[in-house]
Design a binder for these strands. Structure first.
Lengths: 219, 219, 219, 219
DNA sequence: AATGAATGAGCTTTCATTCAT
DNA sequence: GATGAATGAAAGCTCATTCAT
């Protein structure tokens, strides 16, 4: 905005500001994951970020705004991830549903710390409309994408299911698998992937074999 | 909800210890659901129970112990509910899976306030071993019951799926549907039931028709 | 007072009341000695007495009054002890000073628990006039007795000291020895007796030999 | 006393850590002396220091640690005082015992507020090992110094007493005189000095005359 | 006479926020 | 842009006291 007006090191300050903010957001995610939402203090966050006590209020005004921006950051990152996975899958509906389902189990979006932090925010969202609105703003897009692909799968596979219901089922399963991963230990992610493949096999037998491996595509 | 009845009762002193404890536990569940875990104070709980400030420390020693006993109470109640539903279903595997799946969507165990409180505790469990141990102590029994019935369904229906995987799928779906219900508004429970029936239809087509209605049983 | 009027078990109730009060006073002394003045609660006292929570307020009205009566009890007991020792010593000044000094080191008045409780009350007395008045009401008599005997000793022994000063010295030493006993462990009492005898020997050499043993009396 | 100066200072923020800590320690001593140990609250201390409520926890973490550091401060100050007095007295044993005895009655170490606070801590020490360890850590040095000088006095004066016993006597007398000063009012310190001089005269007649005035030294 | 559940004032402690530097 | 000493509201907890039984 006023970058060009600033004579010394144009754009430097604003970038630095953004860098600090992201640094604090990442420290917040890590702290919530490590100590839990209710035990997270700004002192914890500033220690995790290696900065001073007053830093959060300086950059975010209040704890509340830090949390809101942290949640926003997570939502954006999550949406970017599945959108990119969906784009990379190409036009084949089976490849698309596989991408949507499996990308959700990537360490990138559901590492232990991300899952713990997601659940912390979801829980808070139960009583906080502002959190709720943020949480599900992008998520509705994800659910819609799943439903759309389910529709394509039904049309392509000659099955008779209701895409909305089956999409909701897949979506619910994904969230349930996240909860399992939060609870479970080391092998939980691999186990979750197996379950997801079993779901693909059971729900879309014309597109996936019994192991959940995608059958030869349409091409 | 009906806790407020106590507020105007004149002779409310000298209730038995157990009565007071359950009263406080119910007030705790209601308060967590209404204000969120991190915003719940003992003052809130005592107001919700219609009692005095020091009452929680008197009966539970500390906030922490109140929470632990509240969680224990919920676990016990939850387990009793599905065990009783399973027992009532009789021997037919299809009836049993239907009972296990649908009882989980009963208002008795997943009213809005129960779901919100469950998620609050699950989130805390991510960083607290004592909560975690409590949360999943009975739940493992529920998952095992689902898996066992899935095995019976496969044997009876001539399908080839892996009962452990499909059981885990069903279980994950249930938890995902709870999350949906927490997020969603009024019609969420009915919607969740539809999804659950669609899952039964898709996963066990030899036992349930396309609407998720159980086909004529073995008798 | 109304003993005779009470037809059933005359005098029983009043006696029972006094028994309870002394029981509670003794429990108070024990608790102060064990936990310290500032950490002593009425709950502690009632537990130590093997009685119920509300018992102290029932018999003493308030914690403060319990403490005051406890202190009064200790003062009375202490005064009775040295007066009786003094009476038993007979007319010989050397025997009298020996009795006054040594009786103060008897386990009866300065057991570990009594000393700890005495110091607790003395410390409180620094800021509380009511405690102070009680503490030193009888004690002035003890000091006066010492001074009087010191006067007799000087007259009998041909020494030239000031009885008031030497009496005050002896008295200060006694209190200092109590402090030593509070601090010190098992052997502190015997050590204190040795010091007291050394004091007698040094201060009244015509009446006590180098070991602090009384020389042959006047008779 | 002069703590109140801080209350109206405008720019009282950002004092160095050590300055604030000592300020709070002095406020603690004053408050214990004024209200007694058991009645001393952190609110009292912060008011006495002219600072805000949370200040003690900010600088000392807990009330307990404030008390411990206060006691440590007093011990250090006390030890520095008698060591310096002893050093100033030179080599003459009579001058040394006089210095040790009389410096203990200086207003610097036994002002009313210091004595009251010392007795408060000693009383607590009866039931608290950590206090006890602190209280007597330096004090043992003081007693040892007295004993050593008593040995020199015996050798120099041709007396036959046991230095350990007479040293313990002197030491006990000092503590007893402190207790007298705590109890007594205005003239108590002068009275205590007279008693101390009478003790020097009686115990070391070859070094002190009947008034407790040191006789011509060795030179 | 005695009990012990219940109260609520007052305490220590925590911590988001402010602001002089 | 960043620090960290200081604040003070609000929390959990303690415990003397009350009182129905």
């Amino acid at each position: 905005m006023d970058d060009s007006r600033n004579q010394t090191e144009p754009g430097r300050r604003r970038e630095s500001r953004e860098v600090r903010r992201e640094q604090l957001i990442r420290a917040t995610i890590g702290t919530i994951a490590a100590k839990g939402f209710s035990a997270t203090t700004l002192a914890d966050v500033s220690v995790a970020a290696g900065l001073s006590r007053g830093i959060v209020n300086f950059h975010f005004e209040s704890k509340e705004k830090l949390f809101l921006e942290t949640l926003q950051f997570m939502c954006d990152e999550y949406a970017a991830h599945w959108r990119s996975a969906l784009a990379a899958a190409g036009p084949d509906p089976a490849a698309r549903i596989e991408a949507l389902v499996m990308c959700d189990l990537d360490e990138a979006v559901c590492s232990d710390r991300m899952i713990a932090t997601w659940f912390a925010f979801w829980s808070e969202a139960a009583t906080r409309p502002d959190y709720r609105a943020l949480c599900w703003s992008h998520d509705e897009g994800y659910l819609a994408a799943i439903e759309a692909v389910c529709g394509e799968l039904r049309d392509a596979g000659g099955q008779g299911f209701d895409p909305a219901r089956i999409g909701a089922l897949v979506y619910a399963m994904q969230e349930g698998l996240w909860l399992r991963m939060m609870v479970g230990g080391a092998g939980a992610r691999d186990e979750a992937r197996e379950v997801a493949r079993a779901a693909l096999a059971s729900l879309f037998p014309t597109h996936f074999d019994a192991n959940g491996t995608r059958r030869a595509g349409p091409g």
